[in-house]
Amino acid sequence: MSQIPVELVKLLIALAAIAAFVGLNGLVLVYLERKIAGHVQRRPGPFEVGPHGLLQPLADAVKLIGKQLFTPAGADKLLFWMAPVLSFFPVLLLFLPLPFGPTATGMEMNLGLLLILAFSGLNVLAICLAGWGSNNKWGILGAARGVAQSVAYEIPLLLSVLAIAFQTGSLNLSEIVQGQGGWPWQWNAFVQPLAFIIFFVSALGETNRAPFDLPEAESELTAGFHTEYSGMGFGMFFLAEYANMIVVCSVATALFLGGWQGPFFAGSWWFLLKVYVLLVVMIWLRWTYPRVRFDQLLNINWKWLMPLALLNLLITAFVTKLF
């Protein structure tokens, strides 16, 4: 009887740990989102379920799990239910190359950054399937917006990542982290501040976060591409959004903020601290700035982010070649 390969066992354990991590972080981020929203609006936020509302995310999760799964009349059942699955499960693979610590990487690979960029594009397909498969006019409009937005904002995001790849000569996130130091002036964000800003703004657009949440604009499209979803169909889109937020903040931490390295005692806590600081900034931006119009959203990309990202890449390539 042949033995199970050790690498396969490690991969399965890593995926199980990632699934648990995503679920737990989903609960934490729901609580953070609602609490920060409350304080920004001068109210306490969740307060009744558990001490200071700590059990509110758990109550929300139980409510979602208990709701009926409903397929609208006229919807394409296969596409309709394929969309939330396609939105959530590929996200788990994006966590594999992330270096959470010196030895805490799900799967060490030379092209880890390329894997993340390749599989993150599947979310666009999920949005498209959700809007089209639900046979709902708001869903189709949201899907069309989502595809246009994702295709546009992927380009400056890729260009900002390429600048770091040129500078470090690697697509391995662990090697990129090791090439930085623990102090802020040793981080790539200090050397490449423009690339960091472009990456972060593009990440907001890619994850459909306010002020760029046009695909699900409640005031215009009810809930956009997931208007017709209930129960865990909606829950999977919800979890996928938070998982994607963690991924983009983790990639930003590895590329620009020194990853797990810190001024004292390098370790995973530094990585998680930096990731959560970026997540809090993303949540704070949502509840501070109004939603932009769709023409403004595309103008920000094509008139500002794209030219600046190209200029930054050309300067990086020139300086790298020269020195």
Rank of each mutant, 00 (worst) to 15 (best):
E216V: 02
S250F: 05
F256W: 12
W269N: 10
Y276N: 15
L272H: 07
A266S: 15
W284P: 00
P211W: 03
V248R: 02
L298R: 05
I300R: 10
L273T: 14
V248I: 06
G267C: 05
S219Q: 15
F256L: 01
F237E: 13
L305C: 00
V247H: 00
R293K: 14
G231H: 07
A217K: 08
S230G: 15
L239E: 03
H226P: 04
R286C: 05
S219W: 12
M232I: 05
V277A: 08
M282Q: 14
L273Y: 11
V251H: 09
L221M: 12
N299L: 12
V275Y: 04
V275C: 14
L278I: 11
F225N: 01
M232E: 05
P211M: 09
V281Q: 09
R291L: 09
A240I: 00
V247C: 09
L214I: 10
L257Y: 05
C249G: 06
E241S: 12
F294D: 01
I246V: 04
D213T: 02
G259R: 09
F225S: 04
W269L: 13
P263C: 12
H226L: 01
S268A: 14
M245R: 11
S219H: 14
G262S: 11
A223R: 07
P211C: 13
A210L: 04
V281F: 05
P215I: 07
F264M: 07
V247T: 03
V280H: 08
L239P: 00
C249Q: 09
L297A: 01
A266W: 08
F265D: 14
E216K: 04
S268N: 10
G233F: 00
L278F: 15
L298K: 01
L279W: 12
W302L: 09
T227H: 07
A254R: 11
M306T: 12
L305T: 02
L221H: 06
S250N: 03
R286W: 00
T227E: 12
L297N: 04
P211D: 13
N299K: 15
L278T: 02
M245G: 15
T288Q: 07
N299Q: 08
G235P: 10
N244F: 07
E241F: 06
K274D: 05
W284K: 05
W284E: 07
E228Y: 06
F256I: 07
A266Y: 04
W270C: 11
T227A: 03
W260F: 15
G259C: 11
L285M: 15
V248Y: 13
N244I: 02
M232G: 02
